[in-house]
Design a protein around this nucleic acid. Structure first.
Lengths: 140, 140
DNA sequence: TTAGTTGCAAAGGCTTTGCACGCGC
DNA sequence: GCGCGTGCAAAGCCTTTGCAACTAA
């Protein structure tokens, strides 16, 4: 993840303690935090960090292609640091847990030219829905 | 679409003018309106219809499986009346246009058991991103 | 009749904005 | 020192809620 900070510096980012902490909070696999969650975790290390800065930083990471926005059913967007590796999501309809899963093939290839209607197709998002093992297990 | 009203009546829905108008506004292919858009179009025919009623009605149509919620990048959810026929979406990153497209195969089959992590997988959403013909065309 | 629906207005959650101060380079 | 980045607080957008009045069946 320090690779990420280096890349960002190379792109002209000014490295501040706030940005460093946000990037650190996002580190890891299967991380899909809301902006609010990023803020509260960042605040553990940097108590005065503001929500506005967290939103700004997340927005910049997204437009630089370093982080992906994930729209689940819920209200708040989630932020996925695993943007540089193609993957898909498996979401539990009951508890909202999100797991990264990896494609068997290239889903882009599944859209035949006759179904492209002249669009230049550049990406695809795939979200599987179901029940996680805990939620599928009968109660009691 | 009157089929839909009949089905709803059969499920115990009380048919009011507000619900009828919302259902009529949603009729058609490639319809992906926001709640606000549904409200303003409904208000053309029924000026006193309230936003709350539109939200209630859309929510009920979604939980009955007659309409699908679509989360695009933007803030507001969109409502797709084409819920009973499996399909996917092709979205223009520039202007936000959404088209329905139809799968070549069954995308559910693309997730091997080894990538299911014990989840009971019941559905999948596929969203292609790209540029529509108008937005891909160079300016001037 | 009467339980389900509606409209209104207020509240709520998430996100963006404006501006003065602070700090990386 | 310059200019970008930050914090604060207010505003904004989208959606939900509480409740009295209304109406389809």
């Amino acid at each position: 993840m320090s690779d990420l900070l280096e890349r960002l510096r190379g792109r002209g980012w000014r490295i501040t303690s706030q940005r460093r902490v946000v990037v650190e909070v996002l580190d890891g696999d299967h991380v899909h935090l809301t902006a609010e969650e990023v803020h509260s975790r960042a605040a553990l290390r940097l108590p005065e960090i503001s929500r506005a800065t967290v939103y700004n930083t997340l927005g910049e990471l997204v437009s630089l292609g370093e982080v992906m926005e994930v729209c689940t059913d819920g209200r708040a967007k989630r932020y996925d640091p695993n943007a540089r590796q193609p993957h898909q999501h498996l979401i539990c309809s009951e508890c909202g847990t999100i797991r990264d899963v990896h494609p068997a093939g290239d889903p882009l290839g599944d859209l035949p030219a006759t179904e492209r209607f002249g669009f230049t197709v550049s990406g695809v998002e795939v979200t599987y829905r179901g029940l996680c093992p805990s939620c599928a297990r009968p109660l009691g």
